[in-house]
Amino acid sequence: MGFKLLSKLLVYLTASIMAIASPLAFSVDSSGEYPTVSEIPVGEVRLYQIADGVWSHIATQSFDGAVYPSNGLIVRDGDELLLIDTAWGAKNTAALLAEIEKQIGLPVTRAVSTHFHDDRVGGVDVLRAAGVATYASPSTRRLAEVEGNEIPTHSLEGLSSSGDAVRFGPVELFYPGAAHSTDNLIVYVPSASVLYGGCAIYELSRTSAGNVADADLAEWPTSIERIQQHYPEAQFVIPGHGLPGGLDLLKHTTNVVKAHTNRSVVE
Score class of each variant (00 low, 15 high):
residue 3 F to M: 14
residue 3 F to Q: 06
residue 3 F to R: 08
residue 4 K to F: 06
residue 4 K to G: 04
residue 5 L to H: 15
residue 6 L to D: 14
residue 9 L to Q: 15
residue 9 L to C: 15
residue 9 L to K: 14
residue 11 V to S: 10
residue 13 L to D: 05
residue 14 T to F: 07
residue 16 S to C: 15
residue 18 M to Y: 15
residue 19 A to S: 15
residue 22 S to C: 10
residue 23 P to K: 11
residue 27 S to R: 13
residue 27 S to D: 11
residue 30 S to A: 14
residue 31 S to G: 11
residue 32 G to F: 14
residue 33 E to C: 07
residue 33 E to D: 10
residue 36 T to N: 15
residue 37 V to L: 15
residue 38 S to F: 11
residue 40 I to R: 06
residue 42 V to D: 15
residue 42 V to T: 13
residue 43 G to A: 06
residue 46 R to S: 09
residue 47 L to T: 08
residue 50 I to M: 09
residue 50 I to R: 02
residue 51 A to E: 09
residue 51 A to D: 10
residue 53 G to L: 07
residue 58 I to T: 15
residue 58 I to D: 02
residue 62 S to C: 07
residue 63 F to Y: 08
residue 74 I to V: 09
residue 77 D to L: 02
residue 79 D to K: 09
residue 81 L to F: 02
residue 83 L to R: 02
residue 86 T to C: 02
residue 86 T to E: 00
residue 87 A to C: 00
residue 88 W to S: 00
residue 88 W to E: 00
residue 89 G to C: 01
residue 91 K to V: 15
residue 95 A to C: 05
residue 96 L to C: 01
residue 96 L to M: 08
residue 97 L to N: 01
residue 100 I to V: 11
residue 103 Q to A: 12
residue 104 I to K: 01
residue 108 V to A: 07
residue 110 R to Q: 12
residue 111 A to C: 08
residue 112 V to F: 07
residue 113 S to A: 10
residue 114 T to F: 04
residue 115 H to K: 01
residue 119 D to R: 01
residue 121 V to T: 05
residue 124 V to E: 03
residue 124 V to M: 11
residue 129 A to R: 11
residue 129 A to Q: 13
residue 130 A to S: 12
residue 131 G to A: 07
residue 132 V to H: 02
residue 134 T to I: 02
residue 136 A to P: 04
residue 137 S to E: 01
residue 137 S to D: 00
residue 137 S to P: 07
residue 139 S to C: 05
residue 139 S to V: 13
residue 140 T to W: 03
residue 144 A to R: 09
residue 146 V to L: 14
residue 147 E to P: 04
residue 148 G to Q: 08
residue 154 H to V: 07
residue 156 L to D: 02
residue 159 L to P: 07
residue 159 L to T: 03
residue 160 S to Q: 13
residue 161 S to K: 14
residue 161 S to Q: 14
residue 162 S to N: 11
residue 162 S to W: 09
residue 162 S to L: 10
residue 164 D to A: 13
residue 165 A to W: 14
residue 168 F to E: 01
residue 168 F to Y: 06
residue 169 G to F: 06
residue 174 F to Y: 10
residue 175 Y to H: 08
residue 175 Y to V: 01
residue 177 G to F: 02
residue 179 A to K: 02
residue 179 A to S: 06
residue 180 H to R: 05
residue 180 H to F: 01
residue 181 S to N: 01
residue 182 T to K: 13
residue 182 T to G: 10
residue 183 D to R: 01
residue 185 L to Q: 02
residue 185 L to V: 10
residue 186 I to H: 03
residue 187 V to S: 00
residue 193 S to F: 13
residue 194 V to S: 01
residue 196 Y to D: 03
residue 196 Y to C: 05
residue 197 G to R: 01
residue 198 G to P: 03
residue 200 A to L: 10
residue 200 A to G: 03
residue 200 A to I: 09
residue 201 I to C: 02
residue 201 I to K: 03
residue 202 Y to C: 06
residue 206 R to N: 15
residue 209 A to Q: 09
residue 209 A to N: 12
residue 211 N to M: 10
residue 212 V to H: 08
residue 212 V to Q: 10
residue 213 A to V: 13
residue 213 A to T: 11
residue 214 D to H: 09
residue 216 D to K: 06
residue 216 D to R: 07
residue 218 A to V: 13
residue 221 P to F: 05
residue 222 T to P: 08
residue 223 S to G: 02
residue 225 E to H: 10
residue 228 Q to T: 15
residue 228 Q to S: 15
residue 231 Y to P: 01
residue 232 P to H: 08
residue 242 G to M: 02
residue 243 L to I: 15
residue 245 G to F: 00
residue 248 D to H: 08
residue 249 L to I: 05
residue 250 L to F: 08
residue 254 T to I: 13
residue 260 H to V: 12
residue 262 N to V: 11
residue 263 R to D: 15
residue 263 R to Y: 10
residue 265 V to H: 11
residue 265 V to K: 13
residue 267 E to R: 11
